[in-house]
């Protein structure tokens, strides 16, 4: 899983590298933004003007961009900056926001911001919001609600797979995606699947138990 989330970072030469490391977090994103603009303006709700399209290959993307994000089965419009991360868009720009995915390290080390993009777990702090347009996004809120928990969420509750709970949305999302891929994992495989997520309270053993218990029920 962590490997999948890292894919973007390795494939440096892809045109739509989901890693924002290619961009300075500053305003000027000239070179990298050009290809992006072409792709995303077309997908955004805002009707790009002819001149904007003509200039797209030479001009930096800046200012507000209106996007449509497909989140938890809903089409949500959101206004972002080119540099806004998917995590930022979900947490800050969407109204009402989706604050299940947590901002913890903001640099792709901890996994608390994990969301599913076309079913695959990604660190949403490493994905630009503009790169998420047109993708099917699922956050922890989309996996189940307090009144209607998913099997994985129920297993986390039953096995005490959480303490302070700040890492929990990331673990729940990671484990949910992994069990879809491998419905009957070993403990070693669960550990491997969770290696991109940090917990400070020390819930790991119970996260593993929860994942294994949930797998038996699926």
């Amino acid at each position: 899983m962590a490997d999948e989330r890292d894919e973007g970072r390795r494939k440096k030469n892809l045109p739509h590298d989901p890693s924002r490391r290619r961009f300075l977090k500053g305003v000027g994103v000239a070179g990298a933004g050009a290809a992006l603009a072409e792709h995303l303006l077309l997908k955004s709700e805002a009707e790009p003007t002819a001149s904007a399209l003509a200039d797209a290959s030479t001009r930096p993307v800046e200012g507000a961009l209106n996007l449509a994000l497909d989140v938890n089965g809903q089409r949500r419009s959101v206004s972002v900056e080119p540099r806004t991360t998917l995590l930022g868009a979900l947490r800050h720009n969407l109204d009402p926001p989706l604050t299940g995915p947590k901002l913890v390290c903001d640099m792709g080390t901890c996994g608390a911001c994990t969301v599913l993009m076309d079913g695959k777990p990604v660190y949403s702090c490493l994905v630009l919001a503009v790169d998420a347009a047109g993708k099917r996004l699922t956050t922890v809120e989309g996996l189940g609600s307090p009144e209607n928990l998913s099997g994985v969420q129920k297993a986390f509750v039953e096995h005490d797979g959480l303490m302070c709970g700040f890492c929990t949305p990331g673990f729940v999302t990671t484990v949910s995606a992994y069990l879809k891929k491998n419905p009957n994992p070993t403990l070693a495989e669960v550990r491997e699947a969770c290696k991109g997520n940090f917990c400070r309270c020390g819930t790991y053993p119970r996260v593993f138990e929860a994942a294994l218990a949930a797998s038996k029920k699926t």
Binding site: L98, T99, G100, P101, T139, V140, E141, L143, G144, S145, P146, E147, L149, Q153, F156, V157, D160, G161, L162, G165, T168, P169, V172
Partner: peptide
């Protein structure tokens, strides 16, 4: 408080 924490509602 586990149900709200595992579902991102907390």
């Amino acid at each position: 408080d586990a149900p709200v924490k595992v579902s991102g509602a907390a």
